[in-house]
Design a protein around this nucleic acid. Sequence first.
DNA 1: CCATTGGTTCAATTGGCACTGAACGGACCG
DNA 2: CGGTCCGTTCAGTGCCAATTGAACCAATGG
Lengths: 161, 161
Amino acid sequence: MTTDAATDFIELMGLVMQEQGKPRIAGQVFGYLLLEGAPRTLGQISGALGVSKGSVSTNTRLLAAQGMLERVSPVGGRHDLYELAAHPNAPVLRTLAGRFRRNAARIEALSARFAPGQGAARGRVLELAAFYRSSAHYIDNARAVPGREDGLPAAPDPDHP
Amino acid sequence: MTTDAATDFIELMGLVMQEQGKPRIAGQVFGYLLLEGAPRTLGQISGALGVSKGSVSTNTRLLAAQGMLERVSPVGGRHDLYELAAHPNAPVLRTLAGRFRRNAARIEALSARFAPGQGAARGRVLELAAFYRSSAHYIDNARAVPGREDGLPAAPDPDHP
DNA sequence: CCATTGGTTCAATTGGCACTGAACGGACCG
DNA sequence: CGGTCCGTTCAGTGCCAATTGAACCAATGG
């Protein structure tokens, strides 16, 4: 459960998540659940990572909202359990594309308000919007590869089928 | 130079840049230079944005290192000028792909250290690495569309030729 | 019906990073 | 040569967001 490699992995996922602008602990929770591969309670997560229950609660909810985690309530009506979503990676690209698309929309909206004399500048602004828009479109394509709705683009070098 | 729309645009670029994990002022500098469309001195930028010279200096260097800006020293040997790079958007996708690739590499390196009993967990870890690697590959493809090395993927809905 | 266990919420603390502003260095200009 | 104008650097400040920890619910189980 706490091999050296495992803790290092959990730590790494924390850093990776931070790079994506989310709290470090969210990444650690994700890493922990990925290693475990089975539902875990909030208390288990909190204990294993050595962080406060409150923090785990907040971050599990965040991850669940993003679609990387799923909350499970066993039939017996016991307690809440968390486990990895079926395709935990999809949200990474999805939110990325969403952000790009929103950037494009905002920039386009602004461009309409440019004064007539600002034609050249407005052109460059629209070019930027086009960049964001087409990038978003492209990222969506990466997710929409036939046969996998899991956010995993078609592998360029197939290792695991 | 300071239309309402223009200042809003500069502000917006600051926010967008922040979303990408870089300082807000870097985005404002970028936005300002995009609107101006011509080389500007550090003093001009500092004055137009109302921020300290030090901050502008730091952030122009950051943007230049990323390849979004270019430092220009006129033949007369006058002062330093900054202007937008020819293809200022390329770095956005490039650094994104680089980050994904690095994630994949780190995760793969870690996976080698897993104990034999951890086979299942190791498999999930490798799957995650594969996701990052193939995503990076896919993003690179978006940049490598024939005829444009500017980081602008082929426009799905061509507006500006 | 009280006690225990799990989860949420919220005020308070912390830590990190962007930003400032003053001091420094170097080049052109008289 | 002295002066001025740019650009860089760096220590100090302030702010924001993450994290804690305690208090509060809800539900189960004795």
